[in-house]
């Protein structure tokens, strides 16, 4: 860190004036709302009217809210499924780095990640069409293969709706896991592979003996990022199912919004949002710790 001007210890007032705009914006539109959310989670919050202090009532109510806890159960399924789906990006990344032509690698990498360039809402809407009961692609495919009996209203069936949501983005390659796996594998020094080849280590053995251990730290990081992303899961479920049918695809974010906007229970929604916030901040803190300690890897950033 270079100091300028070097000698002067007492700071010029201009410095504080220059920082003032940022301080005001962050104070007013980041710190204030976050703190007022925590504050009002202890109130029967009636925006525009008189709110009454209710202590822990909102949190007591939360503990008895079956839909809220069910929505966390759904998050568990969403999380487990996302981790399972890493198999595809992992295999794709392994396949991609084994391509000998750099040019082919670039072309395939681009093709594999193009879906990332589509806005999330568009992907959700296209998939909602794929799942349509009558004209939907999924049912049409089944009919083509003579499996028309299996054709059904995928998003309307409580037993299938969540899994249908999870399959959005199949085959799950276009995403952060793939980019991380690929960049990790790309950056493993070639000498290691040459040494392997000399020792007669095969491709599969190499994967388990070298690639996986070298990716360990990245996978840890990815796990925590996925937990955080999962906690914020919501807009896809909103667009395709609104949390239904029969709360089968309910997630905490949607429950929170329902309570605020449909139920007008602002204080309760603030308590739910504070709970989500606490979960997330604990996990983010863990991520930050990982980042700081992350000196062993040969991969830059994530």
């Amino acid at each position: 860190m270079v100091v300028l001007p070097p000698k002067k210890k007492r700071a010029h007032w201009g410095i504080y004036v220059a920082l003032l705009p940022l301080a005001l914006v962050l104070g007013a539109f980041q710190y204030y709302p976050a703190l007022s959310g925590i504050w009002y989670s202890f109130w029967d919050w009636k925006p525009g009217f008189t709110s009454t202090f209710t202590g822990l009532d909102n949190y007591v109510r939360m503990f008895g809210d079956e839909i809220w806890w069910k929505s966390f159960g759904n998050l568990g399924i969403i999380f487990a499924f996302s981790v399972l789906t890493w198999v595809v990006p992992l295999v794709s990344a392994e396949l991609l780095v084994s391509l000998k032509s750099e040019r082919a690698q670039f072309i395939y990498r681009t093709l594999l990640i193009v879906p990332m360039a589509f806005p999330g809402v568009v992907t959700a809407l296209v998939w909602s069409f794929l799942y349509q009961p009558n004209n939907g692609v999924v049912n049409q495919i089944l009919r083509v293969f003579g499996l028309g009996d299996f054709a059904q209203n995928w998003l309307g069936n409580p037993e299938l709706a969540l899994i249908a949501l999870l399959f959005i983005g199949f085959p799950f390659v276009a995403g952060l896991p793939f980019l991380i796996f690929y960049s990790t594998l790309k950056n493993i020094p070639n000498e290691i592979f040459e040494a392997c080849a000399l020792d007669g280590v095969g491709r599969v053995r190499r994967f388990f003996a070298i690639d996986m251990p070298l990716m360990g730290r990245q996978v840890q990081l990815l796990l925590i990022l996925v937990i955080i992303n999962t906690l914020q899961y919501g807009f896809v479920a909103y667009i395709l199912t609104h949390g239904g049918p029969d709360n089968a695809t309910m997630v905490p974010v949607l429950r929170m919004l329902n309570q605020a906007y449909d139920g007008q229970a602002w204080g309760y929604a603030a308590a739910l949002s504070t709970t989500l916030f606490v979960f997330t901040i604990v996990l983010s803190a863990i991520v930050a710790l990982f980042r700081r300690r992350d000196t062993t890897t040969n991969v830059k950033g994530i």
Partner: peptide, 13 residues
């Protein structure tokens, strides 16, 4: 570390 979704409701108000 503050997730956007967590301060959505107070920010709305």
């Amino acid at each position: 570390m503050v997730p956007g979704i967590a301060s959505l409701i107070p920010l709305f108000v």
